[in-house]
Design a protein around this nucleic acid. Structure first.
Lengths: 199, 199, 199, 199
DNA sequence: AATGAATGAGAATTCATTCAT
DNA sequence: AATGAATGAATTCTCATTCAT
């Protein structure tokens, strides 16, 4: 009578860890199975294919960000500055975390583009990310500027995350986080004209 | 048929195209061979392994950027504004080009991190990119600001390139290019205090 | 068909047969697989590589000799003559057997020398062979002579086994076995001086 | 106008060296070509196939032994002892020589057995070896004993050569050579009865 | 004579997936 | 639920051989 050794969530998290470390294509079902203490055949009880597992992993990350990162944007009890700070500080923490890590931070994007179904999920993730950031800026800026600031901030974050990986140096991401946060503070006092020209 | 069908350069360019489209891990030597009209064994005449071929591909892209993109930064006959414009405009063109395309724009970074030898080559590419951009900013700003502006600009470019891919929409990259170019013009007239706080 | 078709031992023995017939380098994993009624990929369930399989094969032969051949040397209930006879008679039987056969009799030595890990295993086999033969001789002769007799006997056996193969004629090995056995009988009655000079 | 870079003999000798070091199956035509400073295609000007090259190599070794080793057996100007000594001393020198080396000493026998045409050539080599040794013994012993002594001596030489390789220790072969030589000296004075029983 | 490009068959190995137990 | 044996297609790479120049 085989006892249940793991649950779906465990497998998803182990797979996430491996996909981040070694990328989707470099991670075999065997790798995932042994990380879970299972035989590879057993994974197919939980997921019908490697692709479906990957989709669940992407969704898991998305959910995690929704709950732990993007949510800060909608916390009306805080000031825009505070919300922005919480959002980017928590994002940074997740991106640099070795466990949860940024599957969608940058790693995985390449992979995602290979499989149309993945691409859609990744798009949704970034749309939520944009939306959250934009929501905060809307408290201070008109639509157009909020939109641009959001796009720019997320792009900078993603780009500097990539550099942090390539150069194996967290400071790229950390500096970017700081810069984005200082921007809202300082800019807040600047007059509209400067805002529109500078950004 | 022992008649020469292709040359090394052709293979490198065909491989580049495929690596961009399908990523390194998803592209087989067979794929590359047939793209070149060769049998797969024949590739090994030119490159001792898939890894060596990839290294040549990365170097090819790097050289292309040196010659066609980064070089604009060092053209002392132009104003900083012009140089920046030429650099980012040409970069944008290459990144969005379907042929030459941005193997190192974003695609390939994931792959690169899997293979230490690739990672080193990718690092060199980005260091050259940084250096070129920073060189331009140094004509207008002190070291520290130039450095930060360079880091930020390249990060924004990379991040928005990723969005352009994910959303299959060139405008992310194009808007970023525009924003970076307008920044140097407008900022130039702002006073030092603002410069230091805003960036 | 996920039903077990073979076990490790079967594969080892099939591989042994093929390695003897066609040598290690001339035998493909495909050959072994089909001899076992498996697809070639399936072999990798049992052995991580062809080399590891070969090592198991060498060890299998070694164990077989230990149990069925060398063991006679240590059977203190028999006379030295009887032990020697049993040892070489059983060795001969194994060497000439088409199934178990002499992977290490001579075949395989060439191969073994190509792969350092194999070489070590082959050395151990011959050291055990030497030791067994020497142990018998020690019952009748002083150390030095026992040692030399053992070395010589094993060398003669190996050399004549090679001839038996090259000329496809068992009598080389059979004559050598006879000669070695007659030597201990006759020599036993000769006086020490002759022993020392003749051998 | 392509100039002749090598001659057949050079290729044969380079191939011999490689076949000894790495065995026939582990040596590629490419290896041989580069050892000769040629491209692999060029080898086919001299030999229609790898097999034909190997045959020439075996014949070369055979000829070398005929001229430099076996010939001593037929030098009627020397005593049997001297002839035996010269034959085995020169054989030992060749077997242990890193250049000329014993392709047929033991290495290569395995390979030879794979290809019927090689096997025949190897048989001829050993028949000549036997014949030479037997010719010497016939000067002192009757046919039957001479035959047996020859078989035994050559078998011992081959067996101990194998050990010298396996244990990477020349002394096995050297001790065997000494033993064979001392045998003819000492035995020569023994009376017929002992001769017939001891050997 | 020499080259070197090209071939195509075949090698070892990997891996997602299936399925009887 | 879990196993682990089996599959078969795909992958990287090797190599003897051919042949136009």
């Amino acid at each position: 009578m085989p006892k249940q050794k793991v649950d779906e969530q465990t497998i998803i998290l182990e797979a996430l860890k491996l996909f981040r470390q070694k990328s989707y294509f470099n991670t075999s079902m065997s790798d995932i199975a042994s990380a879970c203490g299972l035989q590879k055949g057993s994974l197919y009880h939980y997921f019908p294919s490697k692709e479906e597992l990957m989709k669940k992993v992407i969704k898991e990350v998305h959910e995690f960000f929704k709950t732990n990162v993007f949510s800060h944007a909608y916390d009306k009890s805080c000031s825009p500055q505070e919300r922005l700070e919480r959002l980017f500080t928590s994002a940074e923490a997740v991106f640099l975390d070795k466990e949860k890590g940024s599957l969608l931070g940058n790693m995985g994007v390449e992979t995602a583009l290979m499989v149309p179904e993945f691409a859609e999920l990744v798009r949704r993730f970034f749309m939520d990310f944009f939306h959250a950031v934009k929501t905060i800026y809307l408290d201070k800026y008109p639509e157009k500027i909020a939109n641009e600031l959001a796009e720019r901030s997320v792009a900078e974050i993603e780009g500097s995350l990539m550099f942090s990986r390539v150069f194996n140096d967290h400071s790229y991401l950390k500096n970017t986080t700081k810069r984005i946060l200082s921007r809202i503070d300082k800019v807040a006092v600047a007059d509209k004209e400067i805002k529109e020209t500078v950004f």
